[in-house]
Design a protein around this nucleic acid. Structure first.
Length: 384
DNA sequence: CAAACGTGGGC
DNA sequence: TGCCCAAGTTT
């Protein structure tokens, strides 16, 4: 094992031709009928590919349908208000995708006078389009015979050819790109790439594959050797780091206090309850671990010092919400507070918002979790 | 290049 | 609950 794929299977020209025919025959019969497969319009292909990054098909479908009604053309997308765009992306995650999507729309409409690049190399110049998406659009919309190397392609070809290059390493992309380039059907590159994706999400899945019934069973060397689950080789990612927060529920006559997150970083520009990170609390004595009640008092005090808004924590009510991101696990203690007087919001980095207006603001899932939890507490009158 | 960047589903 | 997975790109 060299670990770089150099000892992979090599296919003859005859075998390559047989594979193409088998794969495309199956795709013509069993390929999925998806909303973005009704035509090969580059706008449709592009938006769907961006949405599908690290996201499952069933999640994307309703977002895609709504998105196309809201922003039917690349011009509409280029001109859209940023908050309207983010609202359309709300709940889909990886929100920089939405920002980059609009930047690329503007690059096409303004810089390129509405002309799409028609090659993978050209497409990759657009913001948010990397090597995979460039290959997907180029092959599907413009019939360029170029691989679209995504997670499915990594998994499928690692098994077909017993490629043992570690797919977690960026340097492995070239090994797979070259291998697929040699096999891709130059007559139907878009269908070939999409067939590989369909194969990867049906028979040749990561867990519980069903290669026995796969149309390309006879080409699946790893399966034939009884080592299917040894592929793809992939080093695991680090576990999410736990981070403790306090979230403050502060009701004023004008509504609940919400803060807008910074324009960069996690959940950029989105609205949440005011969050205080436990490690940001002022600690005079670093040796002693403060009691929970003391931490709660310090969280409230920190917020008061930052905003000039005075709170009362009586009756103190707290509930816990956890939300796991790719690299962080937030453990949030919800603190329901009362105001001691009408707050001066001049220093507060947010707004008082009536609950009935929440749906006009873009909120991440973690905020929706916190809010549902608070509502449940309210209804039950659970003061514990 | 390693790390940041969301969310939902399956076991 | 925890862990892995799902049509990746940017910095």
């Amino acid at each position: 094992m060299t670990g770089d794929g150099k000892d992979m299977e090599q296919w003859s020209a005859e075998k390559i031709n047989a594979f193409r025919q088998t794969l495309l025959d199956w795709y013509d019969k069993e390929g999925r009928d998806l909303p973005w497969r009704k035509d090969h319009d580059p706008y449709h292909v592009w938006v769907s590919e961006i949405m599908l990054q690290q996201t499952q098909v069933n999640t994307v479908i309703p977002y895609y349908e709504r998105f196309m009604k809201t922003f039917p053309t690349v011009d509409a997308l280029a001109k859209a208000p940023a908050d309207k765009l983010l609202k359309a992306w709300e709940g889909l995650g990886y929100y920089s995708r939405a920002r980059n999507l609009q930047r690329a729309a503007q690059e096409i409409v303004i810089d390129r006078h509405g002309q799409w690049p028609t090659t993978a190399a050209g497409l990759q110049e657009l913001t948010g389009i990397g090597p995979y998406t460039a290959g997907a659009i180029a092959s599907i919309a413009f019939e360029e015979p170029v691989p679209a190397v995504d997670g499915n392609a990594f998994r499928v070809f690692s098994r077909l050819l017993e490629i043992d290059a570690d797919i977690a390493k960026p340097e492995s992309r070239g090994v797979f790109f070259d291998a697929i380039q040699a096999v891709i059907d130059p007559q139907r590159p878009g269908d070939f790439n999409q067939a590989i994706m369909d194969l990867g999400s049906s028979y040749m899945t990561a867990v519980n594959p069903d290669s026995e019934h796969s149309p390309v069973k006879a080409f699946n060397q790893a399966y034939l050797d009884g080592h299917e689950l040894d592929y793809p080789v992939k080093t695991p990612k680090p576990r999410p780091v736990p981070i403790n927060y306090f979230a403050l529920v502060i009701q004023t006559p004008a509504g609940y206090l919400l803060t807008q997150r910074p324009s960069t970083g996690m959940l950029a520009n989105m609205w949440t309850l005011p969050l205080v990170k436990e490690t940001d609390l002022l600690v005079d004595d670093e040796t002693a671990l403060p009691e929970t009640d003391e931490l709660i008092r310090r969280a409230a005090a920190t917020f008061e010092e930052d905003t000039g808004i005075e709170l009362s924590l009586t009756p103190v009510s707290s509930r816990k919400v956890t939300h796991t991101f790719t690299h962080q696990k937030w453990q949030i203690q919800l603190l329901v507070t009362q105001l001691t007087k009408t707050p001066d919001l001049s220093l507060f980095p947010g707004q008082a918002i009536q609950e009935t207006a929440f749906d006009e603001y873009v909120m991440p899932v973690v905020q929706q979790k916190m809010w549902r939890n608070y509502q449940k507490w309210q209804q039950r009158g659970d003061k514990s």
